[in-house]
């Protein structure tokens, strides 16, 4: 898979405060890259630099293999974006808002109807955007970003402020984009659950630094599972389990087994029962992604 977005040591400093701190981001073709971090971690600033809205203090941005500073217009022709709150002209209708953008990106009029259909705003096409709900405005913003069928779609917190049904709708829409149109998507969010459900790759940013970047599936593997067995005389039980070469620990009247297979759990329980231990409870504890992130971001919740 070719690399669509690559930043090298990307840094932005505002009056001595490093908003983005030497970020090396890599987004590959066809990925939905979840850019995750607490509010104020530097997500929006990074995205603004990717779109040429802000100049980096140092470092470089390469998109489609070209350097952004030198080929900005060429690159932006293939990028669609929705940055933070939706931007629109409230005194114009949805159709007119898209027409204003259409003139610039140079696509035929029929694209407007197509994207309005995609985001399910056809019926509201000729209503002024002033009266739209937040969800409708957000969808209009996505429609504008999709107008010229970009290769890269950059969405900054696209589900912010939406109700649950709106969130699901936008999520399904975004998920369908890579398969349907071959787009690569960068989506930022401060909500782990959001990224967990949508992204195929993930980058975690905290205090301006990219502290983790990998495939989402690899991240899920980090979620360790622990088996806790509550039994009579756990001290003796730990010694007994050594026969099975299982590393068991003893904590608060419980046996703790880490990362074991179903077979090992069955063997352990069977052995303990044979040796006359009473088993009261067998529980699996999975460290949630939430906990992993909390530890990554030094306790700043997502």
């Amino acid at each position: 898979m070719s690399i669509i977005v690559q930043t090298e040591q990307l840094t932005k400093t505002f009056q001595k405060q490093q908003a983005v701190d030497h970020v090396d981001m890599v987004i590959r073709e066809g990925e939905i890259y979840g850019f995750l971090g607490p509010n104020g971690a530097g997500k929006t600033t990074t995205i603004r630099m990717l779109l040429g809205l802000m100049k980096p203090t140092s470092g470089t941005v390469r998109i489609f293999g070209k350097e952004l500073q030198k080929h900005k217009l060429d690159i932006l022709r293939q990028v669609g974006s929705l940055v933070e709150n939706p931007s629109y002209y409230p005194h114009l209708t949805a159709y007119e808002n898209l027409n204003v953008v259409r003139e610039i990106v140079g696509v035929p009029h029929k694209r407007i109807s197509e994207v309005l259909e995609t985001v399910r705003l056809t019926e509201a096409a000729h209503r002024k955007v002033k009266g739209f709900s937040l969800g409708m405005k957000q969808r209009l913003g996505i429609a504008a970003a999709l107008l010229h069928q970009p290769k890269l779609l950059v969405l900054d917190e696209p589900t912010n402020g939406l109700d649950p049904s709106g969130i699901i709708e936008i999520r399904e829409l975004i998920k369908s984009l890579p398969q349907q149109y071959g787009m690569t998507v960068l989506i930022s969010s401060h909500l782990l659950s959001e990224i967990d459900q949508i992204a195929t790759a993930v980058g975690v940013v905290s205090r301006g630094k990219l502290i983790y970047q990998d495939q989402m599936s690899n991240l899920r593997k980090l979620a360790r599972s622990t088996i806790r067995i509550q039994c009579s005389e756990p001290g003796k039980a730990v010694a007994a389990l050594k026969q099975l070469e299982l590393a068991a620990a003893h904590e608060q009247e419980q046996l703790i087994l880490e990362n074991c297979s179903n077979r090992s759990v069955a063997d352990a329980v069977s052995l303990l029962v044979h040796q006359g231990h009473d088993i009261y409870r067998v529980e699996e504890n999975k460290q949630s992604l939430e906990q992993i992130f909390l530890s990554m971001t030094d306790g700043v919740s997502l």
Partner: peptide, 18 residues
């Protein structure tokens, strides 16, 4: 103010225009 109202600059200037 047409641009400032909803900070449309960020959308407008992220389009392929100089």
């Amino acid at each position: 103010s047409i641009e400032n109202q909803t900070n449309a600059w960020k959308q407008w200037l992220a389009l392929p225009v100089s």
